[in-house]
Simulated scan of single mutants.
Amino acid sequence: MSRPSRVTPSKVVIAQMVLSLGATLLWWLFYKPPGAAALSAFLGGAICWVPSALFAARLKKLSGAQTAMSWMIGEALKMGTTIAMFIAIAFWYHDVRWIPLLVTYLIALKTYWIALAWR
């Protein structure tokens, strides 16, 4: 009898990236004009997976020394990075399309639940 594969933070980040790229492609194909919408969608996905990748890298670095405080610091880093990325995009990317950005962000954000349900 084989054990079900474990859902690791790295696998979730990879799934977030794949879903983000898939959503970006869909926005490219079905939104006219596609350029700004696709880039906005990609950035929305990145707002989710970049902080998650930082958190996963932090967990990997800690290996056995994972305490409640290290998890809290990791989550704070994740939230701070997410907020900073939203602010940076709003400030510097004047052609942002908010609907593609937010929809793709939410799709990538819900990857955790999809991964848990899938196992």
Score class of each variant (00 low, 15 high):
Ser5Glu: 14
Ser5Tyr: 08
Arg6Val: 12
Ser10Asp: 12
Ser10Pro: 02
Val12Phe: 01
Val12Ala: 00
Gln16Phe: 01
Ser20Ala: 07
Thr24Asn: 01
Thr24Ser: 07
Leu26Gln: 08
Leu26Arg: 01
Trp27Gly: 04
Trp28Thr: 09
Phe30Cys: 15
Phe30Asn: 15
Tyr31Ser: 15
Lys32Leu: 15
Ala37Pro: 02
Leu39Tyr: 14
Ser40Thr: 04
Ser40Tyr: 01
Ala41Arg: 04
Gly45Phe: 03
Ile47Cys: 15
Cys48Pro: 00
Cys48Ile: 04
Trp49Leu: 07
Trp49Ala: 03
Ser52Leu: 12
Ser52Ala: 15
Ala53Asp: 10
Ala53Trp: 14
Ala53Met: 13
Ala53Asn: 09
Ala57His: 15
Arg58Ala: 10
Lys60Ala: 08
Gln66His: 12
Ala68Arg: 09
Ser70Trp: 00
Met72Asp: 06
Glu75Pro: 11
Met79Arg: 05
Thr81Arg: 07
Thr82Phe: 15
Thr82Arg: 11
Ile83Phe: 14
Ala84Ser: 03
Met85Asn: 14
Ala88Trp: 12
Ala88Val: 04
Ala88Tyr: 11
Tyr93Ser: 07
Tyr93Glu: 01
Tyr93Lys: 10
Val96Gln: 01
Val96Arg: 03
Ile99Val: 14
Val103Asp: 02
Val103Cys: 05
Thr104Gln: 00
Leu106Asp: 07
Ala108Ser: 02
Tyr112Asp: 14
Trp113Val: 11
Trp113Met: 07
Ile114His: 13
Ala115Ser: 07
Ala115Arg: 06
Leu116Glu: 10
Arg119Thr: 14
Arg119Met: 12
